[in-house]
């Protein structure tokens, strides 16, 4: 009986360590959630807080960062200033919008590089009308100075007129 109890305790301790220890995948998932929080806008956001969020979102991306959104004819590298300007513009356009990532899968094709496939879901209001939208993204990340930074964002265009 004692042996069973000891085995159970060891098993639970091992499982706890396994789930609590941060690994690269968990760090990247956490970064994605943080990025979504920085993009999210509410009615009550103060200007200074908005600027801080935008700056923090910019710092989570490499400089330059590649963006491809062919529907909007965007396919080039953005430096950090340009990127934060666009994030700020987007936040002003979508002033009450929640950003969340779903169905995220992460692969590591090379050391210090990861590829993310995810769905960005937007829910919010534009001119008192409720709206929902979803986009599939392929996101590239690179480990630079022991930090995972987003290096590319590609909107997957899977439905074309």
């Amino acid at each position: 009986m004692n042996k069973i109890v000891i085995a159970m305790v060891i098993l639970i301790a091992a499982a706890t360590v396994f789930f609590l220890l941060p690994d690269d995948e968990k760090k990247i998932r956490h970064n994605l959630d943080t990025l979504a929080e920085h993009f999210t806008t509410t009615d009550t956001d103060k200007s200074l807080a908005t600027l801080q969020k935008v700056a923090q979102a910019g710092k989570m991306c490499s400089d330059p960062c590649a963006v491809q959104f062919l529907s909007f004819k965007i396919n080039r590298d953005f430096d950090r200033k340009e990127l934060t300007d666009h994030i700020l513009m987007m936040k002003k356009m979508l002033s009450t919008t929640r950003f969340t990532f779903h169905d995220t899968s992460i692969s590591f094709p090379e050391e210090h590089k990861a590829e993310i496939s995810t769905t960005l879901r937007l829910t919010g209001k534009i001119a008192s009308d409720q709206f929902t939208d979803a986009y599939e993204f392929d996101i590239g990340t690179e480990k630079i100075d022991d930090k995972w930074l987003f290096s590319s964002f590609t909107v997957v265009e899977f439905m074309e007129h």
């Binding site: 779903h102 169905d103 899968s105 769905t119 879901r121 979803a134 993204f137």
Partner: peptide, 11 residues
């Protein structure tokens, strides 16, 4: 139903 990157969000 058309999937995006998974089956939690579909069109």
């Amino acid at each position: 139903t058309v999937r995006l990157s998974g089956k939690n969000t579909m069109l």
